[in-house]
Amino acid sequence: MNLLFAILFYAATVILVGGIAYRIYEYLGTPAPLKIPTTPAPTTTGGVAFRMFREVVFFESLFKSNLWIWALGWLFHVGLALVLLRHLRYFTEPVNSIIAFIQPFGMYAGFAMAAGLAGLWARRFLVERIRYISTPSDHLMLALLLGIAVTGLLMKFVMHTDIVAVKTFFLGLMVFEINPLPAHPGLYLHLGMVVLLMIVFPVSKLLHAPGVFFSPTRNQVDNPRESRHIAPWAAQLDSKN
């Protein structure tokens, strides 16, 4: 089991990092020939950075479009962020003081995350329009995330595992040593689902995370008059005429 999880985590990390890097390389390498920022759009680079900050941190557009989805989605994402930060304690020794400080918040963020996920999943059944657009993978993705959250919460509040040994295992992985992992069904489930999530990340809709930074309607400066915007392939067409 120790060896299996070690291999899985190495493979999943390579797939996750390599896959996302490849996607970003693809996005960067594809020209954006048209100026299409959704107006009202900022006219300076700083303004675009601020807009992107609002989008990524507060989900501004989603807030404007649907309060239910915003509330549930934001709850989930903020919960997830805190939970991820909290988990950094398994990968660093000594633990950073900020990470130590957020431990109690991260604990309850787990509930927020699970509640947000449950709400988002309920929408997929209860709202006719969302039901229509949902594919099996949409349900499975929510099931996977909810499974991770629930097994995590179970290990925290119901059936504890030896987290010191878990930390030894992960610190070992980082220096290519395989240490024993506690034999705990909840932990196996939790880690297995995390591995699966890491593997599907670069080929699934989870690509919305890097994708939002490359969305031309959000990351472009609204200055088509001030500076000519033209893609290389469009410039070639120009020179032919």
Partner: peptide
């Protein structure tokens, strides 16, 4: 078109 490529991937339904 970067727009098309990103938009094909990014939608979460």
């Amino acid at each position: 078109y970067r727009s098309l490529r990103v938009y094909m991937d990014a939608c979460v339904h």
